[in-house]
């Protein structure tokens, strides 16, 4: 069946099976910034924004996205540039596979939470797993982004 939604504010039309998940639909259409880490709702690498809120694209049926707005990192590039500079500055860059999903979650966090504590920031991001970094340097960069300390 045909599904029409908005990807980074541009219309996106796809022919999908009813049980296709958004992750597959996006990657089949060469939106390679969305990553397949586990395909079973457990790692956060596939995170996209649905109407501004982080969701797991591996667990969202494409048919349910009709008429909605999906955002990937390509749609928030100015903020990504700022966040990636901070990551670089803090030495947080490693393999990068978790970074696109994490960047979207961090972007949404900044807009959703008012004056979050360290604990609240971590709780919001706990579903974005990273195996490389040990989280410390990432956290420092994220805090600077969230609190506008550049």
């Amino acid at each position: 069946m045909q599904v029409k939604f908005f990807l980074n504010n541009r219309p996106f039309i796809a022919e999908v099976s009813p049980n296709d998940f958004l992750l597959k639909t996006l990657r089949d259409h060469h939106v390679t910034s969305v990553k397949n880490g586990c395909n079973e709702s457990s790692c956060g690498a596939c995170t996209v924004l649905l109407d501004g809120h982080p969701v797991l694209s591996c667990s969202l049926l494409t048919v349910r996205v009709e008429g909605r707005h999906i955002t990937t990192v390509e749609g928030i590039s100015e903020d990504v540039k700022i966040l990636s500079d901070l990551f670089s500055d803090e030495g947080a860059d490693q393999c990068g596979f978790c970074n696109t999903g994490l960047a979207l979650a961090v972007y949404a966090l900044k807009r959703e939470l008012k004056n979050p504590s360290d604990e609240e920031i971590k709780r919001y991001l706990v579903g974005n797993l990273c195996r490389c970094s040990g989280y410390q340097a990432q956290f420092k960069a994220i805090v600077r982004y969230v609190r506008n300390e550049q």
Binding site: S41, G44, P54
Partner: peptide, 12 residues
């Protein structure tokens, strides 16, 4: 409820 997995799962 807020301790279940991550926000991106809880939004679904």
């Amino acid at each position: 409820v807020g301790q279940i997995m991550g926000v991106a799962l809880r939004k679904l």
